[in-house]
C-alpha cells in the first residue's frame, strides 16, 4: 500500500545541511496498522509527511497506492491522495468557521457525495457526538474536537489513514478514548493505519512498530495483538 526506499530529507540551516531523515526504507501492506515511534525530533512527522505526499524527499522514493510520488508534481500527489487518504492531526485542524457536521462533510462534498450531511451525522453519532453536530470547534473540548477530526478522516472512506500524534494535545484519559475510537473504526473499515506517536503505550495496539532515532530506522518489530 505504502512503501519507501532510501528516503532522505535534508534541510538547509544556518549551520549547513541538516539530515532529518536518512535512508529510510519500509513497506506497509494494505490493512496493516503501523506505529512510527521515537522521541521528539527523531523525524516521525517528516516521514509521515513524505509518505502521505505532503512533502517531497531530498532523495529516495515513496510509493503510495501504486504511484511513485516523487515523480509527480504537487497536483499529481494531491490526485493520489484524493478520496484515498485520511488524516488525523495533533492540532485537530478543524475549520473554525464550520460546525462539527460541516467539518466532517467537507471531504464528502469535495468527492461530490450527495448525502454528505446524513453521512456526516452518522459518523458523528458513531464517535459519540450525535448531539453536537451544530457546534463550532470553539464550543467543543479538545477530545471532542479530535473525535470530529476522526469522523472527518473516515468520512471519505479512505484506504489509508495517517494519524500524527492524535493524542498529543489531550490528557491521558481522553487520549485513551480517542485511540479506542480510532482503532475501532480502523478495524471496522479495514483501513491501513500509519500512526505517528511518541507514546510507546500506543505501539502495542498496532501490527507493527517502527522506531526512529536521529532520522534513521533503528528498530522494526512486529507486535502481537
Amino acid at each position: 500500500m505504502v512503501s519507501a526506499a532510501g528516503l532522505c530529507k535534508q534541510v538547509v540551516t544556518s549551520e549547513g545541511m541538516l539530515d532529518i531523515l536518512s535512508d529510510v526504507t519500509l513497506e506497509i501492506k494494505a490493512g496493516e496498522s503501523v506505529a512510527i515511534v521515537g522521541v521528539s525530533g527523531s523525524g516521525k512527522s517528516t516521514l509521515l509527511g513524505l509518505l502521505a505526499g505532503l512533502d517531497t524527499p531530498s532523495r529516495g522514493s515513496v510509493t503510495l497506492a501504486g504511484q511513485r510520488l516523487e515523480l509527480l508534481d504537487e497536483d499529481g500527489r494531491a490526485a493520489v491522495r484524493a478520496g484515498r487518504v485520511g488524516f488525523v492531526f495533533q492540532a485537530f485542524q478543524l475549520l473554525a468557521g464550520m460546525t462539527a457536521q460541516e467539518n466532517v462533510m467537507l471531504p464528502l462534498e469535495l468527492a461530490g457525495v450527495t448525502d454528505a450531511g446524513a453521512r456526516a451525522r452518522e459518523l458523528l453519532d458513531r464517535v459519540g457526538l450525535g448531539d453536537r453536530v451544530g457546534h463550532y470547534p470553539r464550543q467543543l473540548s479538545g477530545g471532542e474536537q479530535q473525535r470530529v477530526a476522526i469522523a472527518r478522516a473516515f468520512a471519505g472512506g479512505p484506504e489509508i489513514l495517517f494519524a500524527d500524534e492524535p493524542t498529543g494535545n489531550l490528557d491521558s484519559a481522553t487520549g485513551a478514548r480517542i485511540i479506542e475510537i480510532l482503532f475501532e473504526l480502523n478495524r471496522e473499515r479495514r483501513t491501513t493505519l500509519i500512526l505517528v506517536t511518541h507514546d510507546e503505550a500506543l505501539a502495542p495496539r498496532c501490527d507493527r512498530r517502527i522506531q526512529l532515532d536521529g532520522g534513521r530506522i533503528v528498530n522494526v518489530a512486529r507486535v502481537s495483538s
Partner: peptide, 16 residues
C-alpha cells in the same frame, strides 16, 4: 491558509 492546506491534503489540486 489552514483551509487551503487542508483542501490540498484532501487531494484538491492547486487549480481546484
Amino acid at each position: 491558509y489552514d483551509t487551503a492546506a487542508l483542501l490540498r491534503c484532501f487531494g484538491v489540486s492547486q487549480g481546484g
